[in-house]
Design a protein around this nucleic acid. Structure first.
Length: 182
DNA sequence: CTCGGGATGCGT
DNA sequence: CGCATCCCGAGG
């Protein structure tokens, strides 16, 4: 298969985070020869979002969220998995989209139906934190044409976030078999 | 420095 | 439900 080359531009990421989250569905995440089609995401819309890492101010860990859009924010969770986010909106906005599941397209072995699993399967770890997604080895590209329905649900694992836990900020492609189970 | 908890995943 | 496994961030 030819690698997807219609790379998303900076302006794609420089928009409302919910819009970017929904628009990321169906796009291709590319890391070297590994390619996955994004099928599930979550929006973390800013410091006012109590579920967002940015909600308690800027720290060493969440610093990428406060930077320019189109950059990866990769962090370690539970000592053993990484989660990958894409920074959105203008610098200082401190919002991002978490990639929760991809559908294997090329070069992938292992499960991809969860944020930690997809990072493991695509060899994404903290070395790629703050990596520009307009680079040549790690980027997101346009998907194939085709319609799909988008399901909206509350985000996973953020029950501590009060009213923000109820907001429908998790988005996935209806009926896709690679959605994370919870 | 200590210490509690976490945007997880897997087995029981 | 328990647990692996460790960094992060708050507090002393």
């Amino acid at each position: 298969m030819n690698l997807p080359v219609r790379k998303l531009t900076r302006s794609f990421y420089d928009h409302d985070t919910v819009t970017v989250a929904r628009d990321l569905l169906g796009k291709y995440l590319v890391h070297g020869a590994r390619v996955g089609r994004i099928v599930e995401v979550e929006a973390y819309v800013g410091p006012h979002d109590r579920a967002s890492h940015s909600s308690r101010g800027r720290t060493a860990r969440n610093a990428p969220m406060f930077g320019p859009p189109g950059v990866a924010y990769v962090y370690l969770i539970y000592g053993m998995y990484c989660c990958m986010n894409v920074v959105t909106e203008g610098e200082g906005h401190a919002a991002a989209v978490l990639l929760r599941a991809v559908e294997p397209v090329a070069g992938i072995s292992g499960k991809t139906n969860g944020p930690g699993l997809l990072c493991r399967a695509m060899d994404i770890d903290r070395r790629l934190n703050m990596h520009d997604l307009l680079s040549d080895d790690f980027y997101i590209a346009e998907g194939e044409a085709g319609e799909f329905r988008i399901v909206k649900r509350p985000r996973i694992g953020v029950d501590y976030a009060g009213v923000w836990a109820r907001r429908h900020l998790r988005f996935y492609i209806a009926g896709n078999p690679f959605i994370s189970r919870r």
